[in-house]
Design a protein around this nucleic acid. Structure first.
Length: 159
DNA sequence: GCCAACGTTGGC
DNA sequence: GCCAACGTTGGC
């Protein structure tokens, strides 16, 4: 099983929206690197749900992959803001996965706090200028972050 | 194939 | 709202 992190703006679709719906297709990814990571996802993989452009931005919950990559049909919907004429049902360029709600974290772990942990410095999320909206998380990082959640303190835990 | 211009992401 | 960093587009 693999671990991932996916970003979404809570104003558009946040962890509470996923909690209410139970499951959702992750549409609108229009970046090749992010798309390629989604195609590697398997049912049962675990996902950190990250809130971007939020107050504060940070990891808000846990989700799970419930359907593997299939064509993102919003690409050929001319009314969608994700429309891309270069992607067609015959030759889809963009893909999405379905994710289901697992749980909210006890608290949102802010980006600012994640940055203070040496054990997490390798995360793409923390790299300068990184904008990757779908990215892999190592097992070590995953477990470390869950331990940080329990810690509940602003940088009180030692790495 | 280079690279300037442009649009977008996302923290602050 | 600002703007740095990044990815894509298109002229040449």
């Amino acid at each position: 099983m693999n671990y991932w992190l996916m970003k979404s703006e809570p104003e558009v679709f946040g962890i509470d929206d996923l909690a209410r719906k139970g499951q959702e297709h992750w549409d609108g990814v229009r970046n090749y690197q992010a798309r390629n990571f989604m195609r590697e996802m398997r049912v049962g993989d675990k996902v950190f749900f990250y809130h971007s452009n939020a107050k504060p931005s940070g990891i808000a919950g846990v989700a799970e992959v419930s359907r593997e990559a299939y064509p993102d049909f919003t690409a050929w919907d001319p009314h969608s803001k994700y429309a891309d004429p270069a992607s067609t049902p015959d030759k889809p360029r963009w893909f999405m996965v379905d994710v289901k709600f697992v749980r909210k974290l006890k608290r949102v772990i802010p980006l600012e706090e994640l940055k203070t942990h040496p054990a997490l410095q390798e995360m793409p999320l923390l790299q300068r200028g990184s904008r990757l909206s779908v990215q892999p998380v190592t097992r070590e990082q995953w477990e470390y972050i869950l331990a940080v959640e329990k810690g509940g303190g602003k940088g009180r835990e030692k790495a």
